[in-house]
Design a binder for these strands. Structure first.
Lengths: 133, 133
DNA sequence: ATAAGGGTTCCACAAGCTGGAAGGTCAATG
DNA sequence: CATTGACCTTCCAGCTTGTGGAACCCTTAT
């Protein structure tokens, strides 16, 4: 398979596959005589794994760890779970942070009549002490 | 005031203030004879405005727009509100996305016993079709 | 005189790709 | 056989929002 095919099947773009190779996330692909990268079904599987992991918000670094664990048949599932739980915590923290932002923003916009008059509580809020917003 | 003072008062680091100047978010500061940047209370106010806006998740580009609106005494509050509402939408979309991630992750980890045995539903989930997870 | 604690510039790196230029390869068509 | 178009290759640049560090200058106090 050429890189385009494997890209289509895995959901990871050709450009990104080359990038992943360049940073060592996936091993260097073998080449044809003319220099094209060659891939097999196993590579599609690996890239799908990566794609799913990235979609769940794991960093590329963490995906590397997950890949190692995935390939190690003797690994302890506890190691995987620990990584996943720590990631969930991170995601939760991010959600909370965004919620706080949204609530403040919503609060400000509700007070803003939003017409063609210049008075704007949003700008006043941004300019003043945020505590009083 | 030197840059360190204004950094302390505004909550924006000296490094970042120089960066904001370099990208044109704030105008170039005047200098002392020896080349130090000089600031006044108005600059502290501006940097505070920027700091608050960034904390609420506005992009630097959007902060630029907000600053323009802030400085324009004749602007319509509707323009500000539109920007804020669109930003709230973005934040909400991000929250939903993260929630979906978290739910999937939680689902997977709940099924993983997480001990020293190698069987791990998390890895299986990442490897397989995510629909079946 | 010297040392501490400012300030200055400039370059590099972080994450995670994506776009584009310049060019080689492959299969099919006229 | 030549050409076309779709692939493939490498390499460089840029995106965003800063941060770290080196090398060096300025100010003030001891």
């Amino acid at each position: 398979m050429n890189i385009g095919q494997v890209a289509k099947r895995s959901g990871v773009s050709a450009k990104t596959i080359r990038y992943y190779e360049s940073i060592g996330l996936i091993p260097e692909a073998s080449r044809t005589d003319s220099g094209y990268r060659r891939y097999g079904d196993k590579d599609v599987e690996t890239l799908r794994f990566i794609h799913h992991s990235r979609n769940l918000g794991f960093s590329v670094k963490d995906v590397g760890l997950l890949l190692d664990l995935w390939r190690d048949q003797k690994r302890a599932s506890g190691d995987v779970k620990a990584l996943a739980l720590s990631h969930i915590e991170q995601v939760d923290r991010k959600i909370e942070e965004l919620k706080k932002m949204r609530d403040t923003l919503t609060h400000l916009t509700k007070r803003c009549h939003g017409d063609d008059r210049p008075d704007c509580p949003i700008l006043k809020g941004l300019a003043g002490e945020m505590a009083e917003v």
